Amino acid sequence: MIDSQFERKASDVLHGLIFDFLLVTDGRTTDLLEMLLNDKIIVHVIRQEQIGEEDANLMGESSGGPYYIRESVLIGEKSRFVVSHNIALVYSKHVPPALFEKIAHRQEGIGKAISSLGMRTFRKVVDSGFMNEAETVDFFQRPIKIHFPNLQNKVPYKRYFIYFGRKPGIQMLEYFHPSIIGHRLQQGMTEEQSNKEE
């Protein structure tokens, strides 16, 4: 009994440490998620469209448009586990044209596109924490349906800006699957068990 209590406590501490790091890092989140999942991550774009002037005004932005919104999920290539649900607001005038073109083609995640082009960026985290599924919203405070099945815990999230110069080019809102660490631990135990049986 003591062992299982200790293991549960150790798991909770590990879970907390990893999410603390994930929510404050200003590095490429996709790299960390791939390491956590032990799987290559692919992007599935749910929607990508230009936003109207009314929504741009809600963001407090009146120049620098057109603006595009992109909603996507990141999924483990082999496991098919959905690790994050992301919303990006792209300020087209402040994004290098080569990157904007890659984003428009919807083939890869924004972080991977930035890396593949060798671009220097600065990221500034402005908000992070945990919220109930019912509280999840987009940039315009409209409710969104998070694409995580069987949610039982609060959803970790992070909002940050990506700068390519003096003004931010992209604002990101990322919701992370709260069970990613449990999924990885289960995957590790399954692999260990199958290795014992061989």
Results as ranks from 00 to 15, higher is better:
51 I>V: 14
51 I>W: 07
52 G>H: 12
53 E>H: 08
54 E>T: 11
54 E>D: 14
55 D>H: 12
56 A>I: 06
57 N>D: 12
57 N>H: 14
57 N>C: 11
57 N>F: 13
57 N>G: 10
58 L>K: 15
58 L>D: 09
58 L>G: 07
60 G>A: 10
60 G>I: 07
60 G>Q: 11
61 E>F: 14
62 S>R: 15
62 S>D: 12
66 P>H: 09
66 P>W: 07
66 P>F: 09
66 P>G: 10
66 P>V: 10
67 Y>K: 09
67 Y>L: 15
68 Y>E: 13
68 Y>S: 11
68 Y>D: 08
69 I>E: 14
69 I>V: 15
69 I>C: 11
70 R>N: 10
70 R>I: 11
71 E>I: 11
71 E>T: 12
72 S>M: 14
73 V>M: 10
75 I>K: 13
75 I>A: 07
76 G>K: 10
77 E>Y: 10
77 E>S: 13
77 E>D: 15
79 S>A: 07
80 R>G: 07
80 R>A: 12
80 R>S: 14
80 R>I: 09
80 R>L: 13
81 F>V: 13
81 F>S: 07
82 V>R: 09
83 V>I: 14
83 V>P: 01
84 S>Q: 08
85 H>G: 02
85 H>M: 05
85 H>F: 03
85 H>C: 02
86 N>A: 11
89 L>R: 05
89 L>Q: 02
89 L>Y: 10
90 V>P: 06
91 Y>C: 08
92 S>W: 03
93 K>E: 14
94 H>N: 14
94 H>L: 00
94 H>Y: 14
95 V>F: 03
96 P>L: 04
97 P>C: 04
97 P>V: 01
97 P>Y: 03
99 L>W: 04
100 F>L: 15
100 F>S: 13
100 F>Q: 13
101 E>I: 00
102 K>A: 12
102 K>E: 15
103 I>L: 06
103 I>Q: 03
103 I>C: 05
103 I>A: 06
104 A>I: 04
104 A>P: 00
104 A>M: 12
105 H>R: 13
106 R>Q: 15
106 R>K: 15
107 Q>W: 00
108 E>G: 06
109 G>T: 13
109 G>C: 01
109 G>Y: 01
112 K>G: 05
113 A>L: 06
114 I>Q: 02
116 S>M: 04
117 L>F: 01
117 L>G: 02
117 L>V: 02
118 G>A: 05
118 G>F: 07
118 G>E: 04
118 G>S: 03
119 M>A: 04
119 M>R: 02
120 R>K: 13
121 T>M: 04
121 T>V: 15
121 T>S: 03
122 F>K: 12
122 F>M: 09
124 K>A: 05
125 V>P: 00
126 V>S: 04
127 D>H: 11
128 S>G: 00
128 S>R: 11
129 G>S: 06
130 F>K: 09
132 N>P: 00
133 E>W: 03
135 E>M: 10
135 E>I: 01
135 E>W: 04
136 T>F: 01
136 T>N: 01
137 V>E: 11
138 D>Y: 03
138 D>P: 05
139 F>N: 03
141 Q>E: 13
141 Q>V: 01
143 P>E: 05
145 K>T: 08
146 I>C: 08
146 I>P: 02
146 I>W: 02
148 F>S: 06
150 N>Y: 12
151 L>T: 14
151 L>F: 02
152 Q>I: 08
153 N>M: 07
154 K>L: 07
154 K>G: 08
155 V>Q: 05
